[in-house]
């Protein structure tokens, strides 16, 4: 019994240590941003990598999510003769929840994995050590631009996802569910508040930071060649996905509870 409690305690301490290491890593990387040199070109490149190249995958998932949402909510609401709420449900669900969460998860899969693999490969091939010997702080050069780009870019992606998701609902609503286009759009706009969109964008900024942090942290600490890089990639995607869902709950509670 004591052994069992001891193992729980050890696991909890290990968890706290991991959280501490992660916080120190993020703190050191962000702290580097308060003094020169700065790398604006690297930040721009990361913004293009994260934002522009993620547009197709985020756009497609948002489109189909909006379409499915319209279909499902119509099926449910028709049981209570409440089909008129479909447009409202679609726009609120997409802007508040599905837009940021789905974009976050897609970016975690695409960008978080790529960051972990790139930085992990640099670690195991001593390129990160080489940066240090060339008087360049790896956290400032590799990590900070990615954290800033993730924080800034995901809200832009989510804004696109919101528009595309709502358009997906509109498409299904007007072509399959026989809604009038004007009344669908009126209904979409009527109950939508600024806070619905803003809360989604704030969530997106947090998720973007989480994705970049997990990709950089696991890549930076990868060990042991190709296998280590593979594990870093897996850990980056899994931990980012879990943290996105966890923080989504807390942020939703903070905004709307």
């Amino acid at each position: 019994m004591i052994g069992f409690i001891g193992s729980i305690g050890a696991a909890f301490l290990a968890f706290l240590a991991a959280v501490g290491r992660l916080a120190l890593f993020a703190g050191r990387a962000l702290g580097a941003g308060f003094s020169p040199p700065y790398y604006p070109r690297l930040i721009l490149r990361q913004i293009v990598d994260i934002g522009y190249y993620s547009l197709p995958v985020v756009g497609l998932t948002a489109l189909f999510t909006g379409m499915v949402l319209a279909l499902q909510s119509h099926t449910g609401f028709s049981r209570f003769n409440a089909e008129g709420a479909v447009a409202t449900v679609v726009v609120l669900s997409v802007t508040r929840e599905l837009g940021p969460v789905i974009a976050g998860l897609m970016v975690a899969g695409r960008v978080g994995a790529s960051m972990a693999a790139e930085i992990g490969t640099m670690r195991v091939t001593e390129q990160i050590d080489a940066l240090t010997t060339l008087s360049t702080d790896p956290l400032r050069y590799l990590v900070l631009p990615r954290l800033l780009a993730g924080f800034v870019t995901l809200p832009c992606l989510v804004l696109v996802a919101d528009i595309v998701g709502v358009f997906g609902g509109f498409l299904v609503g007007t072509t399959k569910l026989n809604f009038n286009a004007v009344s669908y759009l009126t209904q979409t706009e009527r109950y939508l508040e600024t806070m619905d969109v803003v809360s989604g964008l704030v969530k997106a900024a947090v998720f973007g930071f989480i994705v970049a942090l997990m990709g950089c942290y696991h890549g930076y600490h990868s060990r042991g060649g190709a296998e280590g890089v593979g594990q870093a990639t897996t850990h980056a995607v899994v931990s980012a996905s879990i943290l996105i869902l966890l923080f989504n709950y807390f942020l939703t509670q903070a905004f709307f509870a």
Binding site: M122, Q127, T132, T133
Partner: peptide
């Protein structure tokens, strides 16, 4: 660090 130069075993060139 400005005094140092290092040749790594695997070259460690930036891809």
């Amino acid at each position: 660090m400005l005094k140092f130069g290092m040749l790594f075993q695997g070259s460690a060139l930036f891809d």
